[in-house]
Design a binder for these strands. Structure first.
Lengths: 221, 221
DNA sequence: TGCATTTGTTCAAACGATTGATTAAAATTT
DNA sequence: AAATTTTAATCAATCGTTTGAACAAATGCA
């Protein structure tokens, strides 16, 4: 044994261990074919373990979903937190931070990698309104949106918690999210086979230009 | 016997009949809890008929899904077709048509009514990438997006089938779609209980303002 | 017209297959 | 040796589908 003194600490983000393997399998399968359509046997097969391990580690299939939700909040929280939360000194500074966050989010959503399993899982819980939604809202959606509203308000000299700013932030976020949700439609219409680095760049630049357009239109009014 | 000479003609769009009742049940249940999570017994219960009717009319559960998809394309096609497709004489005329279409789409997506069952069903098929996606893409998404690109290009003096316009149209559409997909998050964050007429107006005005911002920023460049 | 037959549709009942969950024994680690 | 973790086998419940009998309306033949 080299490291990993406590199983809990090791499973917090390590790819090893039955528990972690099951969470990864849950994120992938729940996200790509819904909770109900995924059987415990499928989960066990993908995690290369036995069916009973699910009940042992998580109490059942529903428990595994809860654990997956917590893992999503944890990982996505890290992504967003990577953008420095410096106090904004000016409207320009706020706009710069918004640019940085939008770029990071677009990269996370569109550019593949870790988001390939996290985002589908998240979207499914969001639309299905499952029991996980509570965790996601308080742990991720609400604080993130609030922070963005603060920056948006500072960049456009509006009330950060006013309805107008809130809706504008949702609009900007929605654009980025759609390129993930409607990926099958977008790629097909664009004549792409899938999202690659080049495609991600094209989309990101469009989103940044749109962000400036939205910020600018309010600024002028 | 008073009317309804042919059962086929009556079932084409009438709310009566077992076949129509099953399609309605399918649109609702498939959309709100996914295809896999919906049992044939649930469908029969909601349609107030027997389980065997599903196999009789549609050959099975999958057949019912196909019929539901066709119904969605048919009904949503009618909604979009209601906006006059007059040849655009100027950039202003194109912009006016884009306004009208955005208002109609926002009203359809956000303002409740017939969309309450159609949109969830559609979004689910879109994200799940089910066998229905083909029907939806060629019957609805592609022609609609192409038409919008034509208007967008005319309004901004860009190549209607260029990548830039295509992505901008997707962005504008994505904003509207998100307010449906993320409805649970939005309403909660806004302090609303649900989308009502007032909320729909607020969102629609935001979307229209955003549309003008996006069109304007390109126009100036 | 009168009766038998066919047709379209719905019904309760049952089918085999698969579901999530449970159990006790075996294996592994400490 | 003791505790933790994984395994194979089994449980009742539910899944989508099929079956054959009902029923009403239309049709064929007399």
């Amino acid at each position: 044994m080299s490291a990993s003194p406590s199983p809990l600490a090791a499973n917090r983000s390590a790819p090893e261990g039955t528990r972690a393997a099951l969470i990864e399998a849950g994120l992938h399968l729940f996200g790509h074919q819904s909770f109900a359509a995924t059987s415990t046997r499928q989960l066990a097969l993908r995690a290369q373990t036995n069916i009973a391990s699910i009940a042992y580690h998580f109490g059942g299939k529903a428990g595994l979903r809860d654990a997956c939700a917590a893992e999503v909040v944890r990982q996505m929280g890290l992504v967003i937190a990577q953008v420095a939360d410096a106090p904004v000194a000016s409207a320009q500074a706020a706009r710069a931070q918004l640019h940085a966050i939008m770029r990071r989010m677009a990269g996370f959503l569109i550019g593949g990698g870790q988001a390939d399993d996290l985002v589908p899982f998240l979207l499914r819980e969001m639309t299905e309104g499952g029991p996980t939604l509570e965790v996601f809202y308080h742990g991720l959606a609400e604080p993130t949106h609030r922070r963005l509203c603060g920056l948006w308000g500072a960049a456009t000299l509006q009330d950060p918690e006013g309805d107008a700013v809130k809706l504008q932030v949702f609009s900007a976020l929605g654009q980025a999210l759609y390129f993930r949700i409607g990926a099958r439609i977008v790629t097909r219409r664009m004549g792409w086979t899938a999202y690659g680095p080049d495609q991600a760049d094209r989309i990101t630049e469009t989103l940044i230009a749109n962000l400036d357009a939205l910020l600018g239109s309010v600024e002028r009014s």
